[in-house]
């Protein structure tokens, strides 16, 4: 019979979460700095860049917003584009919430504010290995937020002269991270079908209209395929 651990886990959960996402926070450096520099070139002050990172906390939509930024600001266009790029979070939140049982009810709206792609993906992985504790989630959220605020503000202060991170493969660090996390779900029922449908859906739409629509289309295709697949007894296990 295994001995239950007598030590409270609260503190180590925080550092465990922070450590789990540390490589991601590091890999975000070139992108944060690049985004800050682009924001500065569009006329945002470092304080405004910091405010946007702290309020939105979503890299992809921040890049799109800065791309659309002009004077006067096309407010409606920027806000609608931000919403469209972030619609994938609706699915992420719906998926992770049932696994947040260890997080107190009143903290869930706070936790969801920090549902960055990478936090979500790591939280899903964590939830399959054991209970997703508030400490672990908090550690991941705090680490990635502090890093993103620091990198983007630094970029806005540095301004121009920042290189293109895709030249060195930094962009692929995130792709590889998501592939690694994706593969950790490979034992799930209907995995191959879901992946095939999502890959086909997102790639076809991407070829026609690159952008957030491709992510949404791929996600919907994969989810529909999973919903429509013939039910089998062993799936209940």
């Amino acid at each position: 019979m295994p001995t239950p651990s007598p030590t409270p886990r609260r503190r180590s959960d925080w550092s465990e979460g922070a450590l789990a996402i540390l490589p991601v926070a590091g890999a975000a450096l070139p992108f944060g700095v690049l985004w800050g520099a682009l924001a500065a070139q569009k006329g945002l002050s470092p304080l405004e860049a910091l405010l946007m990172s702290a309020t939105v906390l979503a890299g992809a939509s921040q890049f799109v917003a800065i791309d659309l930024w002009a004077h006067p600001i096309p407010i409606a266009t920027v806000v609608v584009a931000t919403f469209l790029v972030n619609t994938r979070h609706i699915l992420m939140g719906t998926s992770i919430l049932p696994k947040m049982e260890a997080i107190p009810r009143r903290w869930k709206p706070v936790a969801l504010f920090f549902l960055v792609d990478e936090v979500w993906a790591l939280a899903e992985k964590r939830a399959r290995e054991g209970p997703l504790t508030a400490g672990c989630y908090g550690g991941m959220a705090a680490m990635i937020s502090v890093a993103w605020l620091a990198w983007t503000t630094a970029g806005a202060i540095l301004g121009t002269g920042v290189g293109d991170p895709t030249r060195y493969g930094f962009d692929f660090a995130f792709t590889a991270l998501f592939i690694g996390l994706l593969m950790s779900f490979r034992a799930a029922p209907g995995f191959t079908l879901t992946v095939a449908a999502a890959a086909a859906g997102s790639t076809v739409v991407h070829l026609v209209a690159p952008g957030p629509l491709a992510i949404a289309a791929g996600a919907v295709a994969g989810i529909l395929a999973a919903a429509l697949r013939p039910a089998r007894r062993e799936d209940a296990a």
Binding site: M92, S95, A226
Partner: peptide, 8 residues
């Protein structure tokens, strides 16, 4: 299927 679909 959401995690695998969105990650893909």
């Amino acid at each position: 299927a959401v995690p695998a679909a969105v990650l893909t």
